[in-house]
């Protein structure tokens, strides 16, 4: 009896050891480089800005030196309508990007899902392949395409000139920002949509056709509602990164096209007001959480479809 017991304890000890050997290092690394920095940022949002940028000390005995914790940055955020406006604008841009991506991605995903099995993988690969180019390169490409000397601007302005209208600038405009956002995030919409559409049973459409439903009705009554989970995960994958994007407005937008991300970048690298930058980051995090929660909730509500 006794040796058996000890063997058991030994093996359970080995199991426990293995558990910590495997999970310990990544747990520790991410605790230090993800969890701790996040906590530091929450704390920083309640601190005073330092005299020369950065943060004011938490503790100080020198009279006249700002120190300790404060709600000041949060009050500041809500006291100036500009910041709320930038948040609203970012939400609008994210919403518009998501809708345009959905509009472009749906026919493509549908076509891939209804193609013969053999060609599907290739068609999906062709959607991912542009990812093989650097993010900045993909944005930069639109600097060329939308530039004042490019064919697109020339053509549009030639038409405008025919009607005696003033020429437009495509680059460094909200339009350019939207095009860039859609371009960079489109595959994030196509892939989950395709994964969903591929699973649909074609029998359903045949049955509907036998019951006299036309193509339009078959799409809106069957395919579209069934694809809701795919739409929602695609929407979350597009909406969330767009909400925090700073590089695209920075490169393709004009001076007036600041989004949340640009505001945050400005606080950390420009004016060096770290507490306010942290506050903006916390607000962005809350916005992201709200969107993720909404997508998950809507997804649960639509579960009976699938």
């Amino acid at each position: 009896m006794a040796p058996e017991m000890s063997e058991k304890t030994q093996s359970s000890r080995a199991t426990r050891l293995a558990r910590w050997l495997v999970s310990g290092p990544p747990l520790l690394f991410l605790a230090v480089f993800f969890l701790l920095p996040s906590a530091i940022m929450v704390l920083a949002s309640f601190r005073y800005p330092g005299e020369f940028g950065g943060l004011a000390p938490l503790f100080s005995t020198v009279p006249g030196v700002l120190h300790g914790l404060t709600f000041e940055t949060y009050q500041f955020f809500f006291s100036d309508i500009i910041y709320v406006q930038v948040f609203l604008k970012s939400f609008l841009v994210a919403l518009a990007t998501t809708l345009i991506c959905l509009l472009l991605a749906y026919p493509l995903a549908l076509l891939i899902a209804r193609s013969p099995k053999k060609s599907r993988d290739l068609m999906v690969l062709l959607v991912i392949l542009p990812f093989a180019s650097n993010f900045l390169v993909r944005v930069y490409a639109w600097m060329i395409l939308l530039g004042p000397q490019a064919a697109l601007s020339q053509a549009i302005n030639a038409v405008l000139a025919l009607f005696g209208l003033t020429p437009v600038h495509l680059l460094f405009s909200p339009f350019a920002v939207l095009v860039g956002m859609v371009y960079v995030h489109l595959p994030f919409m196509v892939l989950p949509l395709y994964t969903n559409l591929e699973k649909h049973d074609p029998m359903l459409l045949d049955a509907a056709q036998d019951c006299g439903a036309n193509a339009w009705q078959r799409f809106w009554r069957i395919t579209f509602p069934l694809s809701m989970p795919g739409i929602l995960s695609g929407a979350a994958l597009v909406f969330i990164p767009v909400l925090g994007m700073f590089a695209i407005p920075d490169i393709l937008g004009g001076t007036g096209d600041m989004l949340i991300g640009n505001l945050i970048k400005e606080q950390f690298l420009g004016t060096r007001d770290w507490p306010f930058g942290s506050t903006l980051s916390i607000m962005l995090t809350l916005a992201v959480l709200a969107v993720a929660w909404l997508a998950a909730r809507l997804g649960r509500g639509g579960k009976y479809y699938a």
């Binding site: 480089f33 920095p37 969330i240 909400l243 991300g261 962005l284 992201v288």
Partner: peptide, 28 residues
């Protein structure tokens, strides 16, 4: 905790990880 810490950085906007690490590296 592990699942949370592994998946969150993948899902959230990159800028958040960027600025929090900036704060952490310099401040801490």
């Amino acid at each position: 905790m592990l699942a949370f810490m592994v998946l969150t950085p993948v899902a959230m906007p990159e800028i958040l990880l960027g600025v929090s690490l900036l704060l952490f590296f310099i401040q801490v």
